[in-house]
Design a protein around this nucleic acid. Sequence first.
RNA 1: GCUGCUGUAGCUCAGUGGUAGAGCGCGUCCUUGGUAAGGACGAGGUCAUGGGUUCAAGCCCCAUCAGCAGCUCCA
Length: 722
Amino acid sequence: MPSIKLPDGKVLEVASSATVADVAATIGPRLAKAAVAGKVNGQLVDLRTPVQDGDTVEIVTLKADDPDALHVLRHSAAHVMAQAICELFPDTQLVYGPPVDDGFYYDIDLDRPLTPEDFPAIEARMAEIVQADRPFTRLTMNRDEGLEKVRAEGSRYKIDNAERANGDLSFYVTETESGPDFEDLCRGPHLPSTGKIGAFKLMQVSGAYYRGDQDDKQLQRVYGTAWPTRKDLAAYLQRLEEARKRDHRKIGQELNLFVIDAQVGSGLVLWKPRGAVLRRELEQLMSHELRQAGYENVYTPHIGRLSLYRASGHFPYYKESQFPAMFESDRAALLNELWEAAVARGEGPEMTAEERAVLDKIERNCPALHQDLTAETGRRYAEHGPAEPNIKLLRGLLEQADGYLLRPMNCPHHIRIYTSEPRSYRDLPVRLAEFGTVYRQEQSGELSGLTRVRGFTQDDAHIFCRPDQLLDEVAGCVNLTRKVLDLLELRDYEVRVSLREPGSDKYVGSDENWVLAEQAVRSAVAASGMASTEAVGEAAFYGPKIDFVVRDCIGRQWQLGTVQVDYNLPERFDLSYIGSDNASHRPVMIHRAPFGSLERFVGILIEHFAGAFPLWLAPVQVVVASISQKSADYATSVRDRLAEAGLRVELDVTAEKIGPKKHAARRQKVPYILVVGEQEASQQSVNVNDRSGKMLVTEPVEAFLARCREEIANRSGACTEA
RNA sequence: GCUGCUGUAGCUCAGUGGUAGAGCGCGUCCUUGGUAAGGACGAGGUCAUGGGUUCAAGCCCCAUCAGCAGCUCCA
């Protein structure tokens, strides 16, 4: 008789050929009824999977807080949805349908676009399938057999899936009394039967590229959610709704913080006075920290010559997300076009058709330039030869007639400040900081409130240091980032080490430099003791990064702070310092921005506090509201006193009752509402209420002021939830 | 950029081819009030923009712009 181990350590003897379901039954009838799957040696399996001697077996039951149970439930719900869609739309080809956080989706290929109007019909069909409580049966066959089967069926997607799977292939069949009625290639596991799906709902439909490839077919992705019970589903929908109330776009509107105006341009933020307060307070906090940490402040303009970005590599590595360059003359525009074509050729010996076409255009439109390009003996552009000499020639000509670029990054400007004077090893590290505004032409579909915009201000700085200073400097940046996040009570973030994708051509610099830089970020994170994940392919084009990533109210991940190690730009700009040996050496650069961008950071902060900012950040800190006209003068004097003391205070002496006045202030999430009537006037006091509606105390104006000052100095008092 | 959805008053939204609506907000007046929305009256719209269909278009069709969700990108 085989014996198996249970999670509590008990050993159970079971019949040979016993399944997970049998194990559950042996333990107890109620467990047998509740069981929906098992975990054998840590692996999630069907209830009908046989167990073997020595296995550790855990029974999975349907609970709203058990990730394994939800995984199986949602996988099965996806399967049921697929069946429903196939029955309603027989042309549907199924592609892939996994469970995801909070639900599941299924990618389908169907010419007719599905819309939310189709959901009721699909849900109704799903409900019938669930109602019928059809069993899921697993059908396993060896790889060759399985491949033959899917190839015979002829679906491109299934063949692809099957070919990419390892080992045996399994199919799941849902059955009726009259036999199998739906089958899908699927790894499983599934619920024992469809009836276990307690509650489900289709959520949305959208496009998704096959295998995530923009050049491949775009499929329809139907999202749904599934839960053990209706109550769980209702609770989930309620949570979703609560989360949406925190949305910074909504709160930004309600609290008059910012506006994104179509007439100004999409992705361009207009900070209204109240939002500007948030931004200024954050800038002041950061400026203070930077002074402490030995940074020096600089200011640089928002545009720069194209040659600067040719040197940095933004042209062409970063070209697709830049606003088009501005050219001073046709000559400059044409030269640049030719330069791009020459760079694209790389080291190729033959001039490309594209280069030739540009050259022809130049001949037609700008004969003088054409002559410059072709006249000089020995450097004739029109001759064959490696691109490099041509690029040099172009670079020389471009020096005389260049274009300008709205800057996508601040580093080139800061680099030129570094190079503006000779640097000694004693001067390093040089830390140049600026709230630098940059512009990036993000794809239109990517724009989102404050979190993804086209013009934004980074709390940027560039550190130029000696190689022996690098680790300390990176550690300093990481600590600074943690410190400011901590000050703002943002503690729910992921630290991500972003590395390059080997073999990709989207990076500049040598392998050796990348190896050095990646070692540096890895050891800095290791030394910090923070838990981290590694993300291959997430590096900047010039170097690896340590990113601080948070989630917004609808679960999307955003990078906030970042620390990036860069050996490459120092080389491209030929940076140097004089060492103690009186020889020239190459510094290392660190790019870092603890907030990342002020726009995104404020967006996340709005959601974090749900608009109820701590006193030091609150755009309006106090509202003074009079009980009646009789106390209006006193209210005004209180307002004046608080304003004089530096508080951001507003006065409400309108002809309204105190109830509505208080309500209005609370709706604006103002931390303190001071109610003043004749009684307070006679005592020179204020009646203090917080934004939760609670009446705190009646105290002298000066006492209230002292408490506010302390609260502001401590940056405390956050999140008195309204 | 791609797929789908959406665009009506400052905001949230109703309005299925026949003269533009509600609530909130805003203004004026009444009420001068003691802690989660007092009352009356009023102003406010080229129904995103441009074309088209129709006797007639907020509504139907096309295009553009913008927003939302997802995908793809992302320094």
